[in-house]
Nucleic acid binder design. Structure first.
Length: 544
DNA sequence: CTAGGGTTAG
């Protein structure tokens, strides 16, 4: 049938040039029209392309129509599942393959093993390993390497090493997978040793070692390896930049960013999120604008960082601009972390209407978004609504965590809701059996003392099982001034002089309290003490 | 007869 062969070859040519799903479907129609649905060679090529361009159901539908599919066909469908679908779908396809007499070969296992590795399913992985041994393909480099990767990713370094040592042939990828295994469990001694023994290295091998040190927070060793590395690529730079950003060293992060010859979206993202998370929201926004001016399209990660920066600044105009920018982009705002950031930004910047409508339209409201909303209400002085929302959260059966209690106690404190604050503090300790942190105590002290319960606040501070931070004492001293209480004022100020000998604030507050009672002699004593210790009032935030 | 597989950064 020479005409069929010609048709098959010409469709293969069409497939090589095919770049869109629409075109793929046209070619599919031709395959059916010409009666080539059983052509294994052609269908294999078709499925590979369909995996990349189209959807798995489409690949599967085409596959189903083939009688007695060849190993090549099974393998290409398995690869599609392992890249685009879940662990269970891949493994059940593998099981179906074995049941339907598909002959598994050395091309079958890497996909199945990778599916196991991707979701940390080491038990199933071991079974697949056994199956590979029974098929006699465990000596293959690709199979062996995927197994080293599997055990390494599942933190079973001893097993990974056993497979690695048993391999009769290894290449740079096999060696790198072994380094990944050691680095993954934080064993950088082991990782460095294997790295040192590698007969050849590529950029990936170097980057694995660098990121291993970075993950341990060992920026010194990471930087040393980075400097030694020949041909640093965009990943090497990004790994270092992200490491510095996460350790709070934005100066080094920025320096390497400027040094990098190529900047991709992940690198921009690392810098922007670094600035946002280390409390430099204005810098984050500035870098974002610089990125935009170079025509780099932001992705969801960058937008989340930008929204976090915006929340910190609390600027409504900026928030509105970001919100509409996001809504006009192709980014799906229904993604949980994007939506959470969007609600948080709108709530903190004062657009409670927008925040509320996003919040109420969520399919299921979670703790994070509740906290954003409560904090938004709190910032804008709507304490009673914050309390009501917190109660609604409890009635929905969500269990508050430490952060949630900090948020609600702060809300109570801002709106001077003493009874509610006491209630939540008790709830936290007794119903949820949580140990309050110094932050929680600080909120309570602030709430009680500002509402005039100076003695109770003082007793709470004294009764704390952990050391309070100076902020709590400072809040109490501020309240002593507010309520003109000399007795507690002296007590608290003397504690603060010990806790924070270098801070002028407490001296100033105490002298203000004396001044309110016209005790000018005491005023001058405090001022002199302050001068003796070389402290100056900072102009601008002085005695007002 | 032709073809298919493994490692790194937010």
């Amino acid at each position: 049938m020479p005409s069929v062969r010609v048709a098959s070859a010409s469709i293969a040519t069409l497939l090589k040039a095919c770049k869109t799903q629409f075109r793929l479907e046209q070619i599919h129609a031709q395959i059916i029209h010409k009666g080539l649905e059983q052509d294994h060679f052609l269908i294999t090529q078709f499925i590979c392309l369909s995996n990349a361009l189209s959807s798995l159901p489409y690949s599967t539908a085409v596959f189903r129509r083939v009688n007695n599919p060849s190993s090549h066909l099974w393998n290409s469908l398995l690869k599609g599942h392992c890249e685009r679908s879940s662990f269970s779908a891949t493994v059940s396809l593998f099981i179906r393959m074995k049941r339907e007499d598909g002959a598994a070969d050395e091309y079958t296992y890497p996909s199945v093993v990778k599916a196991c590795a991707g979701e940390g399913r080491v038990r199933e992985g071991r079974a697949v390993h056994g199956s590979a041994v029974r098929c006699g393909v465990d000596g293959n480099v690709f199979v062996g390497t995927s197994l080293v990767d599997l055990y390494g990713k599942c933190r079973e370094v001893v097993c990974a090493r056993k497979v690695f040592d048993g391999m009769c042939e290894r290449n740079v990828v096999s060696w790198t997978a072994m380094v990944v295994g050691y680095a993954g469990v934080g064993d950088m001694v082991g990782a460095s040793k294997v790295f040192g023994e590698m007969p050849e290295r590529n950029a990936v091998s170097w980057n694995v070692v660098i990121s291993g040190f970075v993950r341990l927070g060992d920026l010194g060793n990471a930087r040393r390896v980075f400097e030694e590395m020949p041909g640093k690529d965009v990943v090497s730079f990004t790994t270092m930049i992200d490491g510095y950003a996460k350790s709070g060293d934005m100066a080094s992060a920025r320096f390497l960013f400027e040094q990098a010859p190529v900047k991709d979206i992940v690198m921009w993202s690392a810098l922007i999120s670094g600035y946002a998370q280390n409390g430099f929201p204005n810098q984050a926004v500035k870098i974002f604008l610089e990125m935009s001016s170079r025509n780099v399209e932001p992705d969801e990660f960058i937008m989340v960082s930008l929204m976090s920066a915006c929340s910190q600044v609390g600027c409504l105009e900026l928030a509105e601009w970001v919100d509409s920018y996001l809504s006009n982009s192709s980014i799906d705002i229904r993604q949980p972390h994007v939506l959470a950031a969007l609600i948080d930004m709108n709530a903190k910047c004062g657009n409670m209407e927008r925040a509320t409508s996003l919040f109420e339209n969520m399919p299921k409201r979670d703790l994070i978004s509740y906290c954003s909303m409560i904090q938004g209400l709190s910032i804008h002085g709507r304490g009673n609504q914050a309390v009501a929302l917190f109660n609604r959260m409890l009635s929905e059966g969500l269990a508050p965590d430490e952060v949630a209690f900090t948020v609600i106690l702060t809300a109570c404190s801002r709106s001077e809701l003493v009874e509610e604050g006491r209630h939540f503090f008790e709830l936290m300790r007794h119903k949820y059996s949580m140990v309050p942190t110094p932050d929680h105590y600080a909120c309570m002290v602030d709430l009680l003392s500002r509402s005039g319960w100076l003695e109770e606040a003082y007793e709470l501070l004294q009764s704390m099982p952990v050391e309070p931070h100076a902020g709590a004492w400072g809040a109490l001293l501020g309240a002593c001034k507010l309520h003109c209480n000399v007795e507690f004022g002296e007590l608290v100020a003397n504690r603060l002089f010990v806790l924070e000998p270098k801070s002028a604030g407490s001296y100033v507050l105490l002298s203000d309290i004396y001044a309110a009672f016209h005790r000018w002699l005491d005023v001058s004593v405090v001022r002199n003490k302050m001068q003796e210790r070389g402290l100056k009032k900072i102009p601008g935030i002085s005695s007002i």
